[in-house]
């Protein structure tokens, strides 16, 4: 599904990712763990195509296609999704309009017809109810006045509506209380299928209690230094990064 090969990324001419390789197969959930500043968010944003992150060498292959040069919206069209650590507030744009424009953008990229407003409403109501989001929040401006937990739930609703092949979730668990964490975890598990992959980026092990990863990577200073099974996350929690890596 995703194959990152010897990736080097610079931000403002400072190298942040220093030769990182990663392969995720269909049906797998991977977790990348690491301290602040290890380059986790840079990696997530680079895979999603953010243009102020400069790839100096290496490549990103997605579903058998080199996407290194694709624009962000094209990568979404191919089936990627990035869940933001800090979802952006957009005053003046309603959540519904935002999601419908997004879904139809993806359908257009794939050469499919636009979804009618009625069909879309049906879809989004179901997805929002699954994630305990009220219709009122769908009508409000994107993320404006949402609490931290509501913003993350909103990310999960968007993911469910777009139904990506690969979801990269950047610190989706940060700032959540336990109920919100469970709801978000349910959303992630619902997206977990034989034909999808998930990459969780996190600080802490606690999300991994609810979403069991197949593979855990430890990232330090722009590189993956250790890879193991889910027990690696527990070990990290107990011993800390310095001892494990």
């Amino acid at each position: 599904m995703l194959k990152v090969t010897d990736l080097h990324v610079s931000v403002d001419e400072k190298e942040i990712i220093k030769g990182l390789s990663l392969t995720i197969n269909p049906g797998e959930v991977h977790a990348i763990m690491g301290l602040n500043g290890a380059g986790k968010s840079t990696l997530a944003n680079t895979i999603a195509g953010r243009d102020d992150y400069e790839i100096t060498s290496g490549s990103i292959e997605f579903a058998g296609k080199d996407v290194t040069e694709l624009e962000p919206h094209e990568r979404v069209g191919e089936g990627m999704f990035l869940g933001f650590q800090y979802p952006v507030e957009i005053p003046g744009v309603s959540n519904l309009n935002f999601m419908r424009t997004a879904l139809n953008g993806v359908r257009k990229y794939r050469g499919e017809d636009e979804m009618s407003a009625a069909e879309f409403m049906k879809l989004v109501r179901v997805k929002a109810a699954d994630l305990k989001m009220s219709t009122d929040m769908l009508k409000r401006f994107v993320n404006v006045g949402f609490s931290g937990g509501e913003k993350k739930r909103n990310e999960m609703v968007q993911m469910a509506v777009l139904d990506p092949k690969l979801a990269i979730l950047d610190e989706t668990d940060s700032g959540l209380d336990i109920d919100a964490l469970k709801t978000v975890a349910d959303g992630i598990n619902a997206q977990r299928r034989d034909d999808t992959s998930i990459l969780l980026i996190t600080h802490y092990q606690r999300l991994l209690d609810y979403v069991q990863p197949d593979v855990v990577h430890v990232m330090i200073d722009g590189k993956i230094v250790k890879t193991g099974g889910k027990e690696l996350a527990v070990e990290l929690e107990e011993k800390g990064y310095a001892d494990v890596a």
């Binding site: 935002f98 997004a102 990229y109």
Partner: peptide, 10 residues
Amino acid sequence: FYLTSRGIDP
């Protein structure tokens, strides 16, 4: 970036 990362063209 948020909008384009959801599949909306620039």
